[in-house]
Write a protein that binds this DNA or RNA. Structure first.
Lengths: 150, 150
DNA sequence: GTCCATGCAAACTGTTTGCACGCGC
DNA sequence: GCGCGTGCAAACAGTTTGCATGGAC
């Protein structure tokens, strides 16, 4: 965790960016909160450390980190973006349409797809987002009235 | 095309919804524009037919069609949602980071992933979005300076 | 000392909603 | 005729930006 924050500060310095207290807090919140925080949640978390950080700074910092490729934002169905650190290898998201839970998973098949695209269409894939939505095991079980689709 | 519009009108009636001139125009625009229109583009297209349609109606109609499963909206990186008719089987998107072109493709591997999720996690997948971004063959060729990621 | 980063508040964008009227059924 | 669908304009949420101050380097 602390190591992650250190690496990110390093990356900032290496890009000629400054490491301010606010940025440090944001990095800490990102590393601890870990997964799928939206800007508002990140804001709350940062303010829990120190109330002297503005929402604008959250957005500006997220912008910088995203440009540097340290962080990635997704629209997982909801209306606002959720951000996560891109330290670990690629992974994908499932979100439950009923309880909203987000589950990360990995799969080797996406790699297959990327290879196909390269070999058959000359496409150079840089990033891949796979977002599956439906009903998680618990919700699928407790709600048999999942038939408002027909 | 006209057939598609007919089918969608049918579906509306079947759901007890009314078929108004505005909705007819929106369906037409969706069927002709075909792929990946955002609300504003759809609005423009509809107004080209008849200027007496409001943006609110566009959104409300898209909402209805989405609920009925006739249309689907995606966030393809940009800030606003892009909509498309879900007539054909599932397909996935590639978007070029340089020229912005969107390419649809199909792949059998996603089905594999969905099956894995069901068998190993009890997840009932309802819809899947795969969005790959990178550089299309043309842009990959013409731009060897694709190294602002390092 | 130089500039980048910040806070604040106002602006902006995409989308939603309240209300009174009109038209499909 | 009943009630859903519409236009209009205002409201809204999330995000961005202009400007003056302050702090990292």
């Amino acid at each position: 965790m602390a190591k992650l924050v250190g690496m990110m500060e390093e990356a900032l310095r290496a890009s000629g960016k400054r490491v301010t207290p606010q940025r440090r807090l944001i990095l800490k919140a990102l590393a601890e909160g870990g997964e799928h925080l939206d800007a508002a949640a990140l804001y709350d978390r940062v303010r829990a450390y120190d109330s002297g950080v503005s929402l604008a700074t959250i957005y500006r910092t997220l912008g910088v980190l995203t440009e540097m490729g340290l962080v990635e934002g997704h629209h997982l169905g909801s209306d606002q973006s959720r951000y996560e650190v891109v330290d670990s290898g690629p992974h994908y998201h499932f979100s439950c349409l009923r309880c909203g839970k987000v589950i990360e998973f990995t799969t080797p098949w996406v790699e297959r797809i990327v290879r196909d695209l390269r070999e058959r269409r000359g496409i150079d894939a840089v990033r891949t987002h796979l977002h599956i939505s439906g009903y998680c095991a618990a919700c699928h079980e407790s709600d048999k009235a999942v038939s408002d689709y027909s």
